[in-house]
Design a protein around this nucleic acid. Structure first.
Length: 544
RNA sequence: GCGCCUGUAGCUCAAUUGGAUAGAGUGUUGGCCUCCGGAGCCAAAGGUUUCGGGUUCGACUCCCGACAGGCGCACCA
C-alpha cells in the first residue's frame, strides 16, 4: 500500500517536472477521516521550490494517476497533506489474504535471516528471580519473539558468573544454616543471604550427606549445592513463563581459554591501560567516558568490567549481526566502558544494542508493596506468577514502555474482570470462539465464506478490517524499535474494535451468505489475536 | 555535585519516533441484556502535555535552562 503510493507519487512529480525531495514520509494518519495514508511531499518540497505547500499539493494531485480499483479518493488537507483513501474492495481483497495466511499472517522476512543474539536475565545464581528480573525476562523474550516473527535468526543467551565474592558468601550462608540444623549456635552475619531458601538448601544438604559435612569449607560442596539448586529453580521459573534459553554462558570459561588475558593485551597494546596503586586501570576517559576504571584489582582479580568486555569480544567472534543486551536501570553505569573498549579494539560497537528497563514497583491497589532483598522480604517472580497467572505477568510486564517505571498492581492483575486489560483482550478471543461454536451448532459452515466477503459493507466492519490489516506493519515496527508495548496496545485496540462490531451486528443470522461473510471476518479477528498473543507469549482461551 | 530515565485527564499510561482537533483504561455521571458470552457496548464530563526559552511550514516529541521523582556514580556484580 505504502510502496504503491510512493511509486505513483514519484511518477506524478516527474510528470509535473519536479525533483523527488528527500525525507518524504508516507504514513497512516492518526486521525480517522484523514484517509488511509497521508504524505507530506508537498510540505517538504515546497520550500526549495519556492511554492506554497497547498498549491504544490494541488499540482501534484493533478498529475497523479492512480488505479481506481485501488484508490478511492485523494484530497489535499490541512497545511498541505495529501490524504489518500483506498477502496473498500481493496481492503476486502487483503482480508482474503489474511485468511489464507492464517497462523502465518504477520510474519515477514524483514530480517533476512540475520543472526541476532539477545542476552537477558543473566542473574547470578544467588537466589530466586525477583519481580525486577521478571520485567527484563519477559521483555527480552518478547523482543526475541518479535525478531523471530520478522525473519531474524535469534539466539537467547543467559550469561552468569558462579565465581566471586557473592557466591562465596552464598556458600557460607548455606554452611552456617547447615550447622544451625546440626544444633550448633551460629552467628549469621547481616550481609549474608537471609532468605528461607538458604535454609531449604541446607536441609537438602543435611538429608543427602548427614553430618559428614560439619568441617567442609563453604567454597566446595555448599556452594555447588546452592548453585545447582538455585539454578534449577531459576530455570523452572523461566520455563513456567514460557522462556527458554539456547545457551547459558558461564563467565568462568573466559578465564580458562585465555579470552580475558587477550583483552588485557589488546588494551595494553593500544596504550589504554596504566598501573596505579597496584591495580590495572582502563583509560576510559581518553575515549570520552567520564572516568578511568579499574579492570584488575591490586589483588590480581579482574573486576566485572573485564570479563564483560571479553564476553562481548566472544559475541563478535561468533559473528552475530546484532547483539542485544538487556538489563535493569541499576546496571546503567556498566555498559559505556564495555562499548568504548570494544570500539577501541576495532569492533563495530554499533552492532551492540543496549536496552535498559526501568524499575518495577509492586502495588496492591493503591498501596506500594515495600521490598528489600537484604531482608529477603521480597516477592519472587514465582510467587507473583502463582498469584496472578503467567498471562497477566507477561502482559503487565510489557504493556508499558521499558523506559518508564512500571507499577505492577497485583490486585488489578488478580482480578478476573473488565478492569484487567489482559482479560479484556483475551475475552474478545473467547467470545469469538463462542460465536464459532454457536455457528457450528446451528449447522452453519464455518470454514468457508471468504467468497462472500463483498457483503461486508458497514462502517463497523470496514473499520475492523482495516485495523486487522495493520497487524503485519505493527509487528514489524515493534520488532525494529524493540518496543513490544505497542503490540499490546494494538491488540487492545483490535479487541475494542471487535466488540464495537459485535454490538452493532449479529454474526449468525438467517441470511446464510451474510453469515458466511461475517464468520470469515470473525475468524480473521481470531487469527490476528492469536498470532499477537503468541508473540506476547500469552494464551488464547477458547472460553474463560 | 555528575550521568542516565521519567514528568501528559483525579489515578495508571498511549501518542505511528517531528505531523493535522493529544488518545485509551480506570474512576465519576447517565443509558443499553426475552437476542451469537454484560468479563461487553453507547454517551457525557475531565488537558496551558511540570515551568521558561529556542530550533521550523509544524513540537508531547529535538536543543538549552529551571523544578520534581527514580536509578546509578567501587579495587561489589
Amino acid at each position: 500500500m505504502k510502496a504503491y503510493l510512493r511509486t505513483i507519487l514519484t511518477d506524478a512529480l516527474q510528470r509535473a517536472g519536479y525533483p523527488a525531495p528527500p525525507d518524504v514520509t508516507v504514513e497512516r494518519p492518526r486521525q480517522e477521516g484523514h484517509g488511509d495514508l497521508t504524505t507530506n511531499v508537498a510540505m517538504v518540497a515546497a520550500k526549495s521550490l519556492g511554492k506554497k505547500p497547498r498549491a504544490l499539493a494541488d499540482e501534484i494531485v493533478a498529475h497523479l494517476s492512480a488505479d481506481p480499483a485501488m484508490v478511492a479518493r485523494v484530497e489535499v488537507a490541512g497545511p498541505g497533506f495529501i490524504n489518500v483513501t483506498f477502496t473498500d474492495a481493496f481492503f476486502r481483497r487483503q482480508l482474503q489474504e489474511l485468511l489464507r495466511a492464517g497462523s502465518a499472517f504477520g510474519r515477514s522476512s524483514l530480517g533476512n535471516g540475520r543472526r541476532v543474539q539477545v542476552e537477558f536475565v543473566s542473574a547470578n545464581p544467588t537466589g530466586p528471580l525477583t519481580v525486577g528480573h521478571g520485567r527484563g525476562a519477559v521483555f527480552g523474550d518478547t523482543v526475541s519473539r518479535l525478531l523471530e516473527w520478522t525473519g531474524h535468526n535469534v539466539e537467547r543467551e543467559y550469561y552468569f558468573n558462579n565465581a566471586g565474592r557473592q557466591m562465596r558468601i552464598l556458600g557460607d550462608s548455606v554452611r552456617l544454616r547447615y550447622l544451625e540444623l546440626l544444633g550448633d549456635t551460629i552467628e549469621f552475619p547481616p550481609d549474608y543471604y537471609q532468605g528461607e531458601y538458604i535454609k531449604d538448601i541446607a536441609r537438602h544438604v543435611l538429608e543427602r550427606h548427614g553430618e559428614s559435612m560439619r568441617s567442609e569449607p563453604a567454597e566446595g560442596l555448599f556452594k555447588s549445592a546452592a548453585e545447582e539448586e538455585i539454578f534449577a529453580d531459576i530455570r523452572a521459573t523461566l520455563t513456567n513463563l514460557g522462556i527458554t534459553f539456547a545457551s547459558y554462558y558461564n563467565e568462568h570459561s573466559l578465564y580458562t581459554d585465555g579470552k580475558i588475558t587477550a583483552v588485557v593485551e589488546a588494551l595494553k597494546e593500544r596504550g589504554l591501560t596504566y598501573e596505579q596503586d597496584g591495580a590495572l586501570w582502563f583509560k576510559a576517559s581518553a575515549l570520552g567516558n567520564e572516568k578511568d576504571k579499574v579492570i584488575i584489582k591490586s589483588s590480581g582479580e579482574p573486576t566485572y568490567r573485564l570479563p564483560d568486555i571479553a564476553y562481548h569480544v566472544e559475541k563478535f567472534r561468533r559473528g552475530y549481526d546484532l547483539m542485544i543486551d538487556i538489563f535493569g536501570a541499576d546496571h546503567i553505569a556498566t555498559y559505556p566502558d564495555v562499548l568504548v573498549a570494544l570500539k577501541a579494539m576495532g569492533f563495530d560497537a554499533t552492532r551492540v544494542k543496549v536496552l535498559i528497563h526501568q524499575f518495577v514497583t509492586i502495588m496492591m491497589g493503591n498501596e506500594v508493596v515495600k521490598m528489600s532483598t537484604r531482608k529477603a522480604n521480597f516477592i519472587t517472580l514465582d510467587e507473583l506468577a502463582a498469584d496472578v497467572g503467567t498471562d497477566a505477568v507477561r502482559y503487565f510486564f510489557i504493556m508499558r514502555t521499558v523506559s518508564s517505571h512500571l507499577n505492577f498492581d497485583i490486585a488489578l492483575a488478580r482480578q478476573k474482570s473488565d478492569e484487567n486489560p489482559v482479560y479484556y483482550v483475551q475475552y474478545a478471543h473467547a467470545r469469538i470462539s463462542s460465536i464459532l461454536r454457536f455457528a457450528e451448532k446451528e449447522g452453519t459452515v464455518v470454514e468457508d465464506g471468504a467468497g462472500e466477503i463483498d457483503l461486508l459493507t458497514t462502517p463497523e466492519e470496514l473499520v475492523l478490517i482495516r485495523r486487522l490489516l495493520q497487524f503485519p506493519e505493527t509487528v514489524e515496527s515493534c520488532a525494529m524499535t524493540h518496543e513490544p508495548h505497542r503490540l499490546a496496545d494494538y491488540l487492545h485496540d483490535v479487541a475494542g474494535t471487535f466488540h464495537v462490531f459485535y454490538h452493532h451486528h449479529r454474526v449468525v443470522t438467517s441470511d446464510e451468505r451474510l453469515t458466511a461473510a461475517r464468520l470469515a471476518l470473525v475468524r480473521a479477528v481470531q487469527i490476528v489475536l492469536r498470532n499477537g498473543f503468541s508473540i506476547l507469549g500469552i494464551s488464547a482461551p477458547e472460553q474463560m
